[in-house]
Amino acid sequence: MKTKDRILKSLLYISTFVTVGVLLWIIGYILIKGVAHISWGFLSTSQTSEYNGILPIIISTLYLVFLGVVVATPIGVFAAIYLTEYAKQGRIVKVIRFATESLGAIPSIVFGLFGLIFFVVILRLQRSLVAGALTVTIMVLPTIIRATEEALKSVPREYREGSFALGASKFRTIFKVILPSAIPGILSAIILTIGRIVGESAAVFLTAGMVPRMPRGIFDPGRTLSVHMYILASEGISFDEAYATAVVLVVIVLIVNFAANKAVNLLKRSRMAS
C-alpha cells in the first residue's frame, strides 16, 4: 500500500516537472538560439541587401491586431453584458451559450476556410488585412465573451442594488457602476485577445495573404509575424531569420501573459479592498 502511494505521488511530481520542463525547454531553446540574430536593423527595416528586416511584417501584425481588437471588443463585451445582466435563463440563452462554446471549439483552419469564402470571395475584400481581421474577430469572440462574463460576475451584487436604490436606470448602472469596476477583467480579456491574434496563423494566411510587403492600408494584403514564422520554418532558407522571428514572438507572448495576469490581479485586489 505504501509503495503504491509513493509511486503515485512521485508520478504526480514527475508529470508536473515534465509540464514545466517542456515549457522552459521551448522558451529557453528559442531565446538562447535566437537572441544573437536579433538586431535593431532586423526589426526596423524592410528588405535590404544585408538581411530581410521584418518591419513590414510587424506593421501588418499591428494592423491585424488593432482592427481585430477594435471590432471584436465591443461585440464581445456587449454580448457578455447581455448574458450576465439582461438574459433570463431560457432557450435563447442556451442557444447563445452553445454557439459560443462551439465557436471556441472550431479549428482555426475552418475559420480560415470560412473567411476565404465569405470575406475574401463573396464580400470581394480580396486577401487583405480587413478580411483577415474580420475572420479573427469571429475567432476571438468566445475568449472575450467568457473573460468579460467572469469579470462582470465578480462585481458584487451590492453595487448593482446600491445603484438601483439611488434611482439609476439599468443602462446607467451598467455603464457607470458595473463596467468601471470590471475594467481590469475586460482589459485582461483584450490582452489575451491580442495574444491570440498575434499567434494565429492558419486562419490568417488564408484570408490576409502572405505578401511580405509594407501594407499601404487595411485593404492591402499583409504577412503577420506568425505567418512569416511559418514560411521561414517551412522554406528552411534562413534559419537565422526564423530564430530571430521566433524570439520576437516569444517576447510578445511573454509580455501578453504577464500583462494579462497583472490585470487579473488588479481586479482581485480591488475586490479584496472593497
Binding site: T19, V20, G199, M229, A233, V250, V253, L254, N257
Partner: peptide, 24 residues
C-alpha cells in the same frame, strides 16, 4: 508558480510549437 507556467503553455502560438518541433 506552476499555474502561470500552464497558462503560458496555452499562450504559445501553434507555429512556435511547430518550429520547436522542427528544430528540436
Amino acid at each position: 508558480l506552476v499555474r502561470p507556467a500552464v497558462e503560458l503553455l496555452a499562450g504559445i502560438p501553434s507555429v512556435l510549437y511547430g518550429f520547436f518541433g522542427l528544430v528540436v
